[in-house]
Design a protein around this nucleic acid. Structure first.
Length: 662
RNA sequence: AGCGGGGUAGGGGAGCCUGGUUACCCCGCCGGGCUCAUAACCCGGAGGUCGAUGGUUCAAAUCCAUCCCCCGCUACCA
């Protein structure tokens, strides 16, 4: 059985995961699930990088210990990833003892081999806080674009990396005092010593980076000489440099976090009999696959292999880099609030929906542009109306017309038999697609198969056959259930939630897992579970709820001109009625002076029409019109909400309709 | 600037490496069908000078050259 180690890039334990970041985890998870279905012995590991300076900074600004911060985010990230269906064997922490020891072991090995050296440097120092200020501990002005909020490691405004020369007017991030340069010394990894070996390895071996390719690495990184890389910092928080005279120095979290791939493997196999981390990191027959975001290509393709060569561990076979995600055409950015937290998203939508959208859209290497409208359309059309609908149609028929028992087929037509071939074909496509880290075509082939299933059902019309040719009807439904089971098995890596639900509906007959079940005959007479649609549609209401969650997270400061864009007015409700076919929606007619408008509001569970008619309320007048359950809303009333309780805002004194609020 | 990726019907994608019958798929639009199914499902139709120009070839979205436009990366943005 092939041993495979799969890793996903370690999230830094200081902030919530957003949906774009999940691309890396979702692709890794799909790969893992598929290889397991083929029978591989896969170890899938990840964990939080807890030594990042941003976590330590947040801790000092919140006045708590750094471990408290990283514990909080470790737990949160772990929970969010589980909710997204990411099936890690082990999700560790770089603050663990095993990890610290492993990092120190790496350093000792590198030192033994002469791969590291200490170098005199000058670093920013804060006289007031009596400390050095590495990376994000220093703020200043970006030397490229002049942005004032630049940090020691880069400028968020223009996206450029900054070094000591690139950051102007540096100040301490803790106290705001200006800094001075002080001499110190640091350990550097002698990257240049590994140049030839890395280059040779990349030129001759299978491509490590399937997305960008060998050419990219060779030209982009290896055509010029490599600069040595500093691996220590003057900080309290981190893995200590285990040498006399190196007190107060820790390893850079870049150095430390990469080693998590080794230490988490150690921790993951602890207590497993006959398993060792060396099975993965020393055995040349095993396979190592790293899934990363495209920002970390250099670290994984150059820096990490140098560290592995220096310690005589094996190099990874593949590094899979996924593109970033934009939101409605604009780069997601946490500081401006233009981002969707995975936590919020998964509370609102089925995890399969996110997985589907993240994979099915753009190619993996390209950036994905998340668009709500597109998300809604694609998920509804492909997952709900095609895939979910077919399975539901087939099983519902069994339940309603055959007493919940899979009927016995009599004679298969050539068309029936063709489905067997189609299934084998789709299986091949899925495996090839995932194995080549392309992902999309396999998923499309599955949806396509479901589409053919719908076509088959419609054309065969078993509901008519029931009256004319029962035997044929039984065969058609048998074939349809066979297809439903095939869809369950084939989609499992991509859409685990769908597969799980379908499996239960099928009576969990295919529980044994793996692709072997496709080969087995579907048992006639087996009893299926209660059929229900596997997915609920994405509605307008869900989308606007999601947007509200987003804005509720947004703590961005705005100036008065931003506020002035909103035309907020007092209005009188002149009519109110429930919107048919919608549980929560009320259609209101509101009068603002001369003008009367229709507003749809999701408050029907809190207020009846009679509560509202004649009341004065506050309305955003210049909101873009939006359609809810078929009714166009031309504005939005203001209401407060807390833990499910809702209260509409009203003017305290009587004031005329159309009065401007500011 | 260098290096990568891309520009294909209203929108989103595939095809290009290994040139060749009416350029494929999804959404949207128009028309029809069905009623098992979450107003779902199925069929048909309209819509494209395949970024521009030039070249190679019997034949180019596909190969070559030049140009225009977009996007990303550029080394410690964990």
């Amino acid at each position: 059985m092939a041993k495979v180690l799969v890793t996903a890039a370690l999230p830094c334990a200081n902030e919530e995961l957003y949906i774009g970041r999940l691309r890396t985890f979702v692709t890794a998870d799909i790969f893992v699930r598929m290889r397991r279905a083929l029978g591989d012995d896969v170890l899938f590991i990840c964990g939080t990088d807890e030594h990042c300076t941003s976590a330590a900074l947040r801790a000092s600004s919140e006045g708590v210990s750094t471990l408290e911060i990283t514990t909080r985010y470790h737990d949160l990230d772990k929970q969010v990833l589980a909710r997204a269906g990411i099936n890690f064997d082990y999700f560790g922490r770089t603050t663990s003892r095993v990890h610290h020891e492993t990092v120190q072991w790496f350093f000792a090995r590198l030192q033994e081999k002469g791969a590291v050296e200490s170098v005199q440097t000058e670093e920013n120092y804060c006289r007031k806080d009596k400390r050095f200020l590495p990376d994000r501990y220093v703020n200043g002005k970006c030397g490229f674009c002049g942005y004032l909020g630049a940090r020691g490691d880069g400028c968020e405004n223009c996206g450029r990396m900054l070094d000591k020369q690139g950051l102007l007017e540096p100040v301490c991030a803790l106290c705001g005092e200006s800094t001075e340069k002080r001499p110190t010394w640091h350990w550097y990894l002698r990257l240049e010593d590994f140049h030839d070996r890395i280059k040779e390895r990349i030129s001759t071996s299978e491509p490590m980076l399937p997305v960008y390719g060998q050419e990219f690495l060779l030209k982009q990184f290896l055509s010029a000489s490599l600069e040595n890389f500093s691996i220590s910092r003057d900080l309290e928080w981190g893995v200590p440099v285990p040498l006399a005279g190196a007190e107060g120095k820790v390893f850079s979290d870049w150095f430390d976090a990469l080693i998590g791939y080794v230490s988490f493997a150690k921790e993951a196999v602890q207590g497993r009999s006959g398993a060792s981390w060396e099975d993965y990191w020393k055995d040349p027959t095993s396979r190592i696959v790293h899934f990363i975001g495209k920002g970390f290509v250099y670290q994984h393709a150059i820096f990490w292999p140098a560290m592995l060569l220096g310690t005589e561990l094996r190099l990874p076979n593949s590094i899979v880099a996924s593109g970033h995600a934009n939101l409605e055409g604009k780069r997601m950015s946490k500081s401006s609030g233009w981002t969707i937290l995975a936590e919020d998203f998964l509370e609102q939508f089925d995890p399969d929906f996110l997985r589907y959208y993240l994979i099915g859209g753009a190619s993996l290497s390209g950036d994905l542009d998340f668009k709500f409208k597109e998300f809604q359309e694609r998920v509804n059309a492909d997952l709900v109306d095609t895939l979910g609908s077919f399975v539901h149609r087939a099983l519902r028929f069994v339940s309603d017309k055959f007493g919940g028992k899979v009927p016995t087929p009599t004679e298969f037509t050539p068309e029936d038999k063709e489905f067997i071939v189609r299934v084998a074909d789709v299986k091949k496509r899925v495996i090839e697609s995932i194995d080549s880290f392309e992902f999309t075509s396999g998923l499309q082939a599955i949806i396509s198969l479901a589409r053919d299933g719908n076509n088959y059902l419609t054309k065969s019309a078993p509901w008519n056959l029931l009256r004319s040719d029962t035997k044929r009807a039984e065969t058609v439904i048998y074939v349809s259930v066979y297809l439903a089971r095939a869809l369950e098995i084939l989609s499992a890596p991509y859409l685990p939630n769908f597969a799980e639900k379908t499996s239960v509906m099928l009576g969990a007959s295919s529980q044994e897992g793996g692709y072997g079940a496709l080969e087995r005959e579907l048992a006639s007479g087996s009893v299926i579970g209660h059929p229900a649609p596997p997915y609920q549609k994405v509605t307008e209401q869900m989308i606007s709820d999601m947007m509200l969650r987003m804005s509720a997270r947004n703590r961005e400061e705005v100036d008065i001109s931003y506020f002035a864009k909103l035309d907020i007015r007092v209005a009188t409700i002149v009519a109110a009625e429930k919107v048919t076919d919608a549980k929560k929606l009320l259609r209101l007619r509101v009068r603002m002076g001369k003008e009367t408008k229709t507003i749809v509001s999701g408050i029907a569970d809190q207020y009846t029409p009679a509560d509202l008619v004649g009341k004065k309320i506050v309305v955003i007048n210049n909101l873009k019109p939006s359609r809810f359950a078929g009714v166009v809303s031309q504005g939005m009333l203001l209401a407060a909400e807390a833990g499910g309780a809702v209260s509409i805002l009203v003017p305290l004194n009587d004031i005329e309709d159309g009065a401007r609020v500011h």
